[in-house]
Design a protein around this nucleic acid. Sequence first.
DNA 1: CTGCCTGCAAACTCTTTGCACGAAT
DNA 2: ATTCGTGCAAAGAGTTTGCAGGCAG
Lengths: 153, 153
Amino acid sequence: MSIPSARETFRKFLAQKGLRVTSQRLAIFDAAFARTEHFTAEQLLDYARSIDDSVSRATVYRTLPIMTKSALLREIDIGSGEKFYMPNSAPNIQIAQVVCIDCDRIFEISAPFMEWYGSTVSSKLGLSPVSQRLQVSARCNTLRDTGSCPKRA
Amino acid sequence: MSIPSARETFRKFLAQKGLRVTSQRLAIFDAAFARTEHFTAEQLLDYARSIDDSVSRATVYRTLPIMTKSALLREIDIGSGEKFYMPNSAPNIQIAQVVCIDCDRIFEISAPFMEWYGSTVSSKLGLSPVSQRLQVSARCNTLRDTGSCPKRA
DNA sequence: CTGCCTGCAAACTCTTTGCACGAAT
DNA sequence: ATTCGTGCAAAGAGTTTGCAGGCAG
Protein backbone atom coordinates (compact mmCIF):
# COMPACT_ATOMS: atom_id res chain seq x y z
CA MET A 1 0.00 0.00 0.00
CA SER A 2 3.04 2.21 0.37
CA ILE A 3 4.24 3.64 -2.91
CA PRO A 4 7.20 1.30 -3.49
CA SER A 5 5.22 -1.91 -3.15
CA ALA A 6 2.32 -0.68 -5.24
CA ARG A 7 4.85 0.37 -7.84
CA GLU A 8 6.27 -3.11 -7.70
CA THR A 9 2.79 -4.47 -8.33
CA PHE A 10 2.64 -2.25 -11.38
CA ARG A 11 6.01 -3.48 -12.68
CA LYS A 12 4.93 -7.05 -12.21
CA PHE A 13 1.65 -6.44 -13.92
CA LEU A 14 3.42 -4.90 -16.89
CA ALA A 15 5.92 -7.75 -17.11
CA GLN A 16 3.21 -10.34 -16.78
CA LYS A 17 1.25 -8.87 -19.66
CA GLY A 18 4.32 -8.51 -21.80
CA LEU A 19 4.09 -4.73 -21.55
CA ARG A 20 7.19 -2.58 -21.36
CA VAL A 21 8.26 -0.63 -18.33
CA THR A 22 8.79 2.89 -19.61
CA SER A 23 9.69 6.09 -17.81
CA GLN A 24 6.37 7.61 -18.86
CA ARG A 25 4.33 4.77 -17.43
CA LEU A 26 6.23 4.96 -14.18
CA ALA A 27 5.79 8.74 -13.98
CA ILE A 28 2.06 8.40 -14.55
CA PHE A 29 1.88 5.70 -11.95
CA ASP A 30 3.80 7.72 -9.37
CA ALA A 31 1.70 10.79 -10.08
CA ALA A 32 -1.51 8.85 -9.57
CA PHE A 33 -0.36 7.26 -6.34
CA ALA A 34 0.80 10.53 -4.83
CA ARG A 35 -2.82 11.71 -4.89
CA THR A 36 -5.27 11.35 -2.06
CA GLU A 37 -8.22 12.99 -3.83
CA HIS A 38 -10.01 12.08 -7.02
CA PHE A 39 -8.46 13.35 -10.20
CA THR A 40 -9.27 13.58 -13.90
CA ALA A 41 -7.17 12.42 -16.86
CA GLU A 42 -6.18 16.03 -17.50
CA GLN A 43 -5.09 16.55 -13.91
CA LEU A 44 -3.13 13.34 -14.02
CA LEU A 45 -1.33 14.66 -17.10
CA ASP A 46 -0.29 17.75 -15.13
CA TYR A 47 0.85 15.73 -12.16
CA ALA A 48 2.79 13.29 -14.31
CA ARG A 49 4.46 16.09 -16.25
CA SER A 50 5.75 17.59 -13.02
CA ILE A 51 7.63 14.31 -12.58
CA ASP A 52 8.58 13.72 -16.20
CA ASP A 53 7.71 16.50 -18.61
CA SER A 54 7.96 14.22 -21.62
CA VAL A 55 4.64 12.59 -20.71
CA SER A 56 1.96 13.27 -23.28
CA ARG A 57 -1.81 13.35 -23.05
CA ALA A 58 -2.02 10.35 -25.38
CA THR A 59 0.13 8.23 -23.11
CA VAL A 60 -1.94 9.17 -20.09
CA TYR A 61 -5.06 8.04 -21.92
CA ARG A 62 -3.31 4.87 -23.04
CA THR A 63 -2.02 4.09 -19.56
CA LEU A 64 -5.24 4.69 -17.64
CA PRO A 65 -7.00 1.56 -18.95
CA ILE A 66 -3.92 -0.49 -18.07
CA MET A 67 -4.07 0.76 -14.51
CA THR A 68 -7.81 0.33 -14.11
CA LYS A 69 -7.70 -3.19 -15.51
CA SER A 70 -4.92 -4.07 -13.11
CA ALA A 71 -7.16 -2.77 -10.31
CA LEU A 72 -4.52 -0.28 -9.27
CA LEU A 73 -6.88 2.55 -10.08
CA ARG A 74 -10.60 2.86 -9.59
CA GLU A 75 -12.59 4.64 -12.28
CA ILE A 76 -15.56 6.72 -11.27
CA ASP A 77 -18.09 8.04 -13.72
CA ILE A 78 -20.60 10.41 -12.20
CA GLY A 79 -22.10 11.24 -15.56
CA SER A 80 -20.52 14.69 -15.76
CA GLY A 81 -18.67 14.20 -19.02
CA GLU A 82 -15.27 13.47 -17.58
CA LYS A 83 -14.21 10.46 -15.59
CA PHE A 84 -12.49 10.53 -12.24
CA TYR A 85 -9.81 8.24 -10.92
CA MET A 86 -8.56 7.23 -7.51
CA PRO A 87 -5.74 4.99 -6.30
CA ASN A 88 -7.28 1.73 -5.24
CA SER A 89 -5.78 0.88 -1.88
CA ALA A 90 -8.23 -1.91 -1.10
CA PRO A 91 -9.39 -3.45 -4.38
CA ASN A 92 -11.83 -5.91 -2.89
CA ILE A 93 -13.98 -3.56 -0.88
CA GLN A 94 -17.37 -2.54 -2.21
CA ILE A 95 -17.56 1.21 -2.35
CA ALA A 96 -20.47 3.55 -2.95
CA GLN A 97 -19.99 7.02 -4.34
CA VAL A 98 -21.91 9.91 -2.89
CA VAL A 99 -21.76 13.03 -5.02
CA CYS A 100 -22.69 16.25 -3.26
CA ILE A 101 -24.71 18.42 -5.60
CA ASP A 102 -23.87 21.50 -3.55
CA CYS A 103 -20.10 21.28 -3.48
CA ASP A 104 -19.47 18.85 -6.37
CA ARG A 105 -17.35 16.66 -4.18
CA ILE A 106 -17.21 12.90 -4.49
CA PHE A 107 -17.25 10.96 -1.26
CA GLU A 108 -16.63 7.28 -1.17
CA ILE A 109 -17.93 5.06 1.52
CA SER A 110 -17.77 1.37 2.14
CA ALA A 111 -21.01 -0.38 1.22
CA PRO A 112 -20.56 -4.07 1.97
CA PHE A 113 -24.23 -4.87 1.46
CA MET A 114 -23.92 -3.92 -2.18
CA GLU A 115 -22.29 -7.17 -3.19
CA TRP A 116 -25.22 -9.20 -1.96
CA TYR A 117 -27.56 -6.85 -3.70
CA GLY A 118 -25.78 -7.14 -7.02
CA SER A 119 -25.79 -10.91 -6.82
CA THR A 120 -29.48 -11.03 -6.01
CA VAL A 121 -30.41 -8.69 -8.80
CA SER A 122 -28.23 -10.45 -11.36
CA SER A 123 -29.32 -13.97 -10.54
CA LYS A 124 -32.92 -13.06 -11.28
CA LEU A 125 -31.74 -12.44 -14.83
CA GLY A 126 -29.46 -15.46 -15.15
CA LEU A 127 -26.37 -13.32 -14.96
CA SER A 128 -23.25 -13.36 -12.83
CA PRO A 129 -22.23 -9.98 -11.43
CA VAL A 130 -18.79 -8.70 -12.37
CA SER A 131 -18.91 -5.37 -10.61
CA GLN A 132 -21.45 -3.06 -9.11
CA ARG A 133 -21.63 0.48 -7.99
CA LEU A 134 -24.06 2.48 -5.99
CA GLN A 135 -24.09 6.13 -6.83
CA VAL A 136 -25.96 8.61 -4.72
CA SER A 137 -26.58 12.27 -5.48
CA ALA A 138 -27.13 14.23 -2.32
CA ARG A 139 -27.36 17.69 -0.84
CA CYS A 140 -25.45 19.03 2.14
CA ASN A 141 -27.49 19.21 5.33
CA THR A 142 -25.23 21.82 6.92
CA LEU A 143 -25.44 24.04 3.88
CA ARG A 144 -29.20 23.77 3.97
CA ASP A 145 -29.38 24.59 7.69
CA THR A 146 -26.64 27.17 8.10
CA GLY A 147 -26.05 28.46 4.60
CA SER A 148 -22.46 27.30 4.33
CA CYS A 149 -20.85 23.98 3.58
CA PRO A 150 -18.15 22.84 6.01
CA LYS A 151 -16.71 20.44 3.45
CA ARG A 152 -16.13 23.18 0.96
CA ALA A 153 -12.51 24.33 0.83
CA MET B 1 -49.92 4.89 -19.12
CA SER B 2 -51.40 4.49 -22.57
CA ILE B 3 -49.93 6.88 -25.10
CA PRO B 4 -52.79 9.41 -25.18
CA SER B 5 -52.83 10.03 -21.45
CA ALA B 6 -49.07 10.22 -21.16
CA ARG B 7 -49.13 12.65 -24.05
CA GLU B 8 -51.70 14.66 -22.14
CA THR B 9 -49.31 14.70 -19.19
CA PHE B 10 -46.69 16.08 -21.52
CA ARG B 11 -49.02 18.81 -22.79
CA LYS B 12 -49.91 19.76 -19.27
CA PHE B 13 -46.30 19.81 -18.24
CA LEU B 14 -45.43 22.10 -21.12
CA ALA B 15 -48.34 24.43 -20.39
CA GLN B 16 -47.53 24.49 -16.71
CA LYS B 17 -43.96 25.53 -17.37
CA GLY B 18 -44.99 28.12 -19.93
CA LEU B 19 -43.39 26.05 -22.68
CA ARG B 20 -44.94 25.88 -26.12
CA VAL B 21 -46.57 22.83 -27.59
CA THR B 22 -44.85 22.35 -30.93
CA SER B 23 -45.19 19.65 -33.54
CA GLN B 24 -41.54 18.73 -33.05
CA ARG B 25 -41.90 18.24 -29.32
CA LEU B 26 -44.95 16.09 -29.83
CA ALA B 27 -43.23 14.02 -32.49
CA ILE B 28 -40.27 13.44 -30.20
CA PHE B 29 -42.61 12.54 -27.39
CA ASP B 30 -44.60 10.09 -29.50
CA ALA B 31 -41.42 8.53 -30.86
CA ALA B 32 -40.05 8.00 -27.35
CA PHE B 33 -43.26 6.49 -26.03
CA ALA B 34 -43.62 4.07 -28.93
CA ARG B 35 -40.40 2.39 -27.77
CA THR B 36 -40.21 -0.53 -25.41
CA GLU B 37 -36.42 -0.81 -25.40
CA HIS B 38 -33.74 1.65 -24.37
CA PHE B 39 -32.71 4.14 -27.00
CA THR B 40 -30.08 6.81 -27.55
CA ALA B 41 -30.56 10.45 -28.54
CA GLU B 42 -29.51 9.59 -32.08
CA GLN B 43 -32.02 6.75 -32.32
CA LEU B 44 -34.72 9.00 -30.96
CA LEU B 45 -33.90 11.47 -33.71
CA ASP B 46 -34.48 8.75 -36.30
CA TYR B 47 -37.72 7.61 -34.70
CA ALA B 48 -39.01 11.16 -34.40
CA ARG B 49 -38.10 11.96 -38.01
CA SER B 50 -40.17 9.03 -39.20
CA ILE B 51 -43.12 10.85 -37.62
CA ASP B 52 -42.14 14.39 -38.51
CA ASP B 53 -39.10 14.76 -40.73
CA SER B 54 -38.60 18.38 -39.76
CA VAL B 55 -37.26 17.33 -36.35
CA SER B 56 -33.62 18.27 -35.91
CA ARG B 57 -30.91 16.83 -33.75
CA ALA B 58 -30.71 20.08 -31.81
CA THR B 59 -34.36 19.91 -30.88
CA VAL B 60 -34.02 16.34 -29.73
CA TYR B 61 -31.17 17.36 -27.46
CA ARG B 62 -33.17 20.34 -26.23
CA THR B 63 -36.28 18.28 -25.60
CA LEU B 64 -34.65 15.40 -23.77
CA PRO B 65 -33.90 17.40 -20.59
CA ILE B 66 -37.48 18.63 -20.57
CA MET B 67 -38.76 15.08 -20.65
CA THR B 68 -36.34 13.76 -18.07
CA LYS B 69 -37.08 16.62 -15.69
CA SER B 70 -40.79 15.98 -16.05
CA ALA B 71 -40.07 12.34 -15.13
CA LEU B 72 -41.59 11.15 -18.39
CA LEU B 73 -38.28 9.70 -19.43
CA ARG B 74 -35.62 7.97 -17.40
CA GLU B 75 -32.00 8.69 -18.26
CA ILE B 76 -29.48 5.89 -17.95
CA ASP B 77 -25.75 6.46 -18.10
CA ILE B 78 -23.75 3.25 -18.14
CA GLY B 79 -20.50 5.08 -18.73
CA SER B 80 -20.23 4.13 -22.38
CA GLY B 81 -20.09 7.64 -23.78
CA GLU B 82 -23.69 7.90 -24.87
CA LYS B 83 -26.72 8.07 -22.65
CA PHE B 84 -29.75 5.85 -22.92
CA TYR B 85 -33.38 6.73 -22.39
CA MET B 86 -36.51 4.85 -21.53
CA PRO B 87 -40.18 5.81 -21.12
CA ASN B 88 -40.87 6.02 -17.43
CA SER B 89 -44.08 4.16 -16.79
CA ALA B 90 -43.70 4.12 -13.01
CA PRO B 91 -41.72 7.19 -11.97
CA ASN B 92 -41.59 6.41 -8.27
CA ILE B 93 -40.07 2.97 -8.36
CA GLN B 94 -36.39 2.51 -7.56
CA ILE B 95 -34.72 0.71 -10.40
CA ALA B 96 -31.32 -0.91 -10.71
CA GLN B 97 -29.58 -1.34 -14.04
CA VAL B 98 -27.86 -4.56 -14.92
CA VAL B 99 -25.63 -4.26 -17.96
CA CYS B 100 -24.66 -7.52 -19.62
CA ILE B 101 -21.03 -7.30 -20.72
CA ASP B 102 -21.58 -10.11 -23.21
CA CYS B 103 -24.54 -8.78 -25.15
CA ASP B 104 -24.42 -5.10 -24.17
CA ARG B 105 -28.02 -5.14 -23.14
CA ILE B 106 -29.40 -3.09 -20.30
CA PHE B 107 -31.82 -4.83 -17.99
CA GLU B 108 -33.74 -2.92 -15.40
CA ILE B 109 -35.05 -4.44 -12.28
CA SER B 110 -36.94 -3.10 -9.32
CA ALA B 111 -34.67 -2.47 -6.36
CA PRO B 112 -36.90 -1.31 -3.50
CA PHE B 113 -34.12 -1.40 -0.88
CA MET B 114 -31.99 1.00 -2.78
CA GLU B 115 -33.61 4.03 -1.31
CA TRP B 116 -32.80 2.89 2.19
CA TYR B 117 -29.22 2.18 1.13
CA GLY B 118 -28.86 5.63 -0.32
CA SER B 119 -30.17 7.22 2.86
CA THR B 120 -27.91 5.15 5.06
CA VAL B 121 -24.82 5.90 3.06
CA SER B 122 -25.60 9.61 2.77
CA SER B 123 -26.47 10.16 6.40
CA LYS B 124 -23.03 8.96 7.43
CA LEU B 125 -21.72 12.00 5.60
CA GLY B 126 -24.33 14.50 6.79
CA LEU B 127 -25.99 14.57 3.39
CA SER B 128 -29.55 14.08 2.22
CA PRO B 129 -29.96 11.82 -0.80
CA VAL B 130 -31.59 13.28 -3.88
CA SER B 131 -31.33 10.28 -6.15
CA GLN B 132 -29.46 7.02 -6.33
CA ARG B 133 -28.65 4.39 -8.82
CA LEU B 134 -27.32 0.92 -8.56
CA GLN B 135 -25.51 -0.32 -11.58
CA VAL B 136 -24.34 -3.87 -11.98
CA SER B 137 -22.07 -5.20 -14.72
CA ALA B 138 -22.58 -8.88 -15.29
CA ARG B 139 -21.89 -11.76 -17.62
CA CYS B 140 -24.39 -14.13 -19.12
CA ASN B 141 -24.51 -17.55 -17.45
CA THR B 142 -26.05 -19.25 -20.48
CA LEU B 143 -23.39 -17.86 -22.78
CA ARG B 144 -20.71 -19.12 -20.42
CA ASP B 145 -22.27 -22.60 -20.21
CA THR B 146 -23.55 -23.18 -23.73
CA GLY B 147 -21.62 -20.71 -25.82
CA SER B 148 -24.62 -18.72 -26.96
CA CYS B 149 -26.69 -16.00 -25.39
CA PRO B 150 -30.47 -16.54 -25.50
CA LYS B 151 -31.10 -12.86 -24.91
CA ARG B 152 -29.15 -11.89 -27.98
CA ALA B 153 -31.34 -11.07 -30.96
C1' DC C 1 17.62 -5.71 -33.75
C1' DT C 2 12.67 -6.12 -33.35
C1' DG C 3 8.57 -4.26 -32.49
C1' DC C 4 6.21 -2.13 -28.70
C1' DC C 5 5.67 2.75 -27.05
C1' DT C 6 5.87 7.40 -27.68
C1' DG C 7 4.50 12.46 -28.89
C1' DC C 8 2.11 15.09 -32.01
C1' DA C 9 -1.81 16.47 -34.13
C1' DA C 10 -5.80 15.31 -36.39
C1' DA C 11 -9.95 12.77 -35.99
C1' DC C 12 -13.94 11.18 -33.52
C1' DT C 13 -18.20 11.00 -30.71
C1' DC C 14 -21.55 12.98 -28.29
C1' DT C 15 -23.58 17.15 -26.96
C1' DT C 16 -24.19 22.18 -26.74
C1' DT C 17 -24.73 26.77 -28.66
C1' DG C 18 -25.11 31.28 -31.75
C1' DC C 19 -27.81 32.90 -35.15
C1' DA C 20 -31.62 34.36 -37.97
C1' DC C 21 -35.99 32.66 -39.33
C1' DG C 22 -40.62 30.85 -38.24
C1' DA C 23 -44.43 29.48 -35.55
C1' DA C 24 -47.26 29.37 -30.97
C1' DT C 25 -49.75 32.17 -28.01
C1' DA D 1 -47.24 41.37 -32.13
C1' DT D 2 -44.22 39.15 -29.06
C1' DT D 3 -41.18 35.95 -27.89
C1' DC D 4 -40.09 31.31 -27.66
C1' DG D 5 -38.69 27.40 -30.50
C1' DT D 6 -36.47 25.85 -34.50
C1' DG D 7 -32.86 24.10 -38.03
C1' DC D 8 -28.41 24.64 -39.41
C1' DA D 9 -23.78 24.47 -38.81
C1' DA D 10 -20.01 25.42 -36.03
C1' DA D 11 -18.05 24.92 -31.62
C1' DG D 12 -16.89 22.30 -27.46
C1' DA D 13 -15.28 18.76 -24.31
C1' DG D 14 -13.25 14.57 -23.58
C1' DT D 15 -11.10 10.81 -25.62
C1' DT D 16 -9.03 7.98 -29.38
C1' DT D 17 -6.02 7.05 -33.23
C1' DG D 18 -2.55 7.17 -37.45
C1' DC D 19 1.94 8.02 -38.15
C1' DA D 20 6.95 8.23 -38.04
C1' DG D 21 10.58 8.01 -34.97
C1' DG D 22 12.62 6.15 -30.31
C1' DC D 23 13.73 3.09 -26.72
C1' DA D 24 13.00 -1.41 -23.97
C1' DG D 25 13.91 -6.11 -24.12
